[in-house]
Design a protein around this nucleic acid. Structure first.
Lengths: 153, 153
DNA sequence: ATTAAAATGGCAAGGCATTGATGGATCAAT
DNA sequence: ATTGATCCATCAATGCCTTGCCATTTTAAT
C-alpha cells in the first residue's frame, strides 16, 4: 500500500511540474519560479519582501537550489535582492520588481485556469481532505530529517 | 486553496526524494532507481522483465529520462537489457540481474522501515484515502496532456 | 577584542526531469 | 518491395534538487 501511495506521489508531482510549467511557459516561467513569485506576491510579503531564509522555510528547498532559482528570476528582472536599510545587515530581502508584479498579475489568469482544470473532478471538501493529508505527510517526512515546519502557508 | 494544495504536493514530493534517497543511500541508490527496481521485482515482471515502454507507462517518465536511469542501473550491475528471443525484435526487456535481485532483497528492510516512519501518523484508512485522492489527481493532471493511464500499479 | 554563530553567496559534482531533433532497427500493411 | 508506424537509443540544451565545502559579512556572546 505505502508502495503505491508513494508511486502516486511521484507521478502526480512529475505531472504537476510538467503540465504546470507548460501552463506558464508563455511567460518563460516554471512551476518553481511560479511558487517563488506566488510567495512574494502574498500581502504579507508584498512590501517587505522575504529573506532567503524565509523563502527556504516556505518552499522547503535547499539554499543552493533557491539561490539558482532567484538568480534566474533576477536575471529576468522579476525579482530583486536588497539589503533593507536599518535592518540586520546579514539579511537580503527578496522582493518583486514592478515588472515582476505586473507579470505575476498576468500569470494569474493562466494559473487559475490551470487549477480549475487540474482539480476539475474534485469537490471543495475533497481538496481540503487532500490538502490536510499532504500536509501531514509533509510533516511526517520532514520529521525524518529534523526540519522545522517554519512559516505556515 | 488549490494554491496551498499544490505547494504541499511540491514540498512532500521533494521531501520524499530527499529522505527516501537517504534511506537507501547505503546501497548507492536513489528513489527513482528504487522505483524501477520495485517495478521489476513484482511477480508479474520478475521472470519476463518489462519493456522500456511498459516501464515508461508504469512510472510515467520520459523515455530519455528512463534511459539515463537504466544506464546507471545497468552500470551498477543491477539490471540488464536483453532482446527476448523469439519476441518482437524491437522490444528490449529490462530485467533484474541476480545481483539486482539480491540487492533489492537487502534494500527491502530499509524500505519497509522508511515506509513505517514516513506514515507513522497515518491509519490504514487514511493511507487508502490519500492514495485514492492522489490517484485521481494524477489522472486529472495526466488528462491535461493526453497521457494514457496505462498499466495500473 | 576575540570568538562563535548566523545569513548569504560561490563553486563543484551527481542525479533527475523535461523538451527537441536525429537515427536505426523492426514490424505490419499495402 | 516500398511505405509508414513503432520501439529504442543518442545527443543537446535547460532547469531543478541535493550534497559537500569554502568564503564573506554581520551580529552576538564572552
Amino acid at each position: 500500500m505505502a508502495n503505491r501511495l508513494f508511486l502516486r506521489l511521484y507521478q502526480a508531482s512529475n505531472l504537476m511540474h510538467k503540465t504546470g510549467t507548460r501552463a506558464v511557459s508563455g511567460f518563460g516561467a516554471t512551476t518553481q519560479q511560479w511558487a517563488v513569485l506566488g510567495a512574494l506576491s502574498r500581502p504579507a510579503a508584498r512590501e517587505r519582501g522575504m529573506t532567503v531564509k524565509e523563502l527556504i522555510g516556505f518552499l522547503m528547498v535547499s539554499r543552493q537550489n533557491l539561490t539558482a532559482v532567484l538568480d534566474r528570476l533576477e536575471k529576468a528582472g522579476l525579482v530583486e535582492r536588497a539589503r533593507s536599510a536599518g535592518a540586520d545587515g546579514r539579511l537580503r530581502h527578496v522582493r518583486l520588481t514592478r515588472h515582476g508584479a505586473a507579470t505575476w498579475a498576468e500569470m494569474l489568469g493562466s494559473i487559475r485556469q490551470y487549477y480549475d482544470a487540474a482539480l476539475a473532478g474534485f469537490s471543495t471538501e475533497e481538496c481540503v481532505t487532500l490538502f490536510r493529508l499532504l500536509d501531514r505527510l509533509r510533516d511526517g517526512l520532514g520529521a525524518l530529517q529534523g526540519a522545522e515546519p517554519d512559516a505556515p502557508a
